[in-house]
């Protein structure tokens, strides 16, 4: 078990290291930031000065070395656009994103579990068919479209919930639902197919033979086994959630990391892009490590291996 977790941890660190190189290169591949920072009429001399001041004239390897050296001590540099330490920007935005993502994940789990499990238990009934429709809609309706439609209808026409910006709990409903929607669909389908398989297992048959009531057979005996594939995908869903946050936060004017990423990309604000992507990657990696640990809790066969 310890070896299993150690292996995963080493892999996580390697992932982050490779990612830092990729994101550093990609950010520079999008174009010259000087064209955005300086007015169009700036002289060649001005350009050279600013370039030197920001260290943009140095070779990429040197720039990367400096970048990674600072990152390791937790310094992401100064935003080219906001003229403000990137750390401050992230400190302001990150909690907002975490709260929204947490809310979305909670919505997803609260909807997906009953829907997925009951669809399997009532396979081929009307309930199951309805579930399938929800699942298909969930995986095919684009997030930005859903967000805009919800703002237009629920927020604007019906005025049930505010259309955006951060605030009380009612502000979380629409962006949270939009963000969690995709995850609901995927998780629900995984639970359904997992449960259908497990409900056919001999140990479920034996549980029924022992006289265990059906509710316990489903929610305890079967579900714990069906959780294993769901947990596997949980990490991926979390990554999708983080990626979708860029769209959702932009649509709902949510002052989080996603919108910060969007702004940084449109202004070619390298330090911010790098920081946002790295922080997001770090979060996804840590979440995946936590999920690996969760595996160990759920499946005793992993706990006792290695």
């Amino acid at each position: 078990m310890r070896r299993f977790l150690l292996q995963r941890a080493i892999r996580a660190v390697l992932t982050l290291a490779i990612l830092s190189v990729v994101i550093f290169a990609l950010a520079r591949a999008t174009g010259d930031p000087l064209t955005l920072i300086l007015p169009p009429e700036a002289s060649a001399e001005d350009r050279a000065n600013v370039s030197q001041e920001l260290g943009l004239d140095r070779p990429w390897v040197v720039q990367y070395g400096r970048f990674i050296g600072h990152v390791l001590v937790g310094d992401f540099g100064i935003s080219l656009y906001h003229r403000q330490p990137v750390n401050e920007l992230i400190r302001d935005r990150l909690p907002n994103s975490m709260r929204l993502a947490g809310f979305a994940m909670a919505v997803a789990i609260l909807l997906a579990f009953p829907l997925g499990v009951l669809a399997a238990a009532r396979k081929d009934t009307l309930f199951d068919r309805g579930d399938q429709v929800i699942a298909i809609l969930g995986q095919s309706v684009p997030t930005f479209w859903l967000g805009v439609v919800l703002i237009e209808t629920v927020a604007s026409r019906l005025q049930w919930f505010p259309p955006g910006d951060i605030g009380g709990l009612d502000h979380y409903i629409l962006p949270g639902f939009t963000l969690g929607w995709f995850v609901v669909a995927g998780m629900m389908r995984l639970l359904r197919s997992g449960m259908i398989e497990v409900l056919d297992a001999e140990y479920v048959k034996l549980a029924r033979i022992k006289g265990v009531i059906e509710r316990r057979v489903i929610w305890q005996h079967a579900l714990k086994n069906a959780l294993i594939p769901v947990v596997t995908f949980m990490g991926m869903y979390f990554a999708i959630l983080v990626a979708n946050a860029i769209v959702v936060e932009t649509v709902f004017a949510w002052p989080g990391m996603g919108r910060l990423a969007y702004e940084a990309i449109t202004t070619r604000d390298f330090p911010v892009i790098q920081a946002v992507v790295l922080v997001a990657a770090l979060i996804v990696t840590v979440a995946n490590l936590a999920i690996d640990a969760l595996y160990v809790v759920i499946d005793p066969r992993i706990r006792h291996a290695g």
């Binding site: 001999e202 714990k224 086994n225 005793p300």
Partner: peptide, 16 residues
Amino acid sequence: AMILQDPMSSLNPVFT
């Protein structure tokens, strides 16, 4: 009560 054929699959792997 009933005993099934295959003890490898008739016990739930995730419970003690």
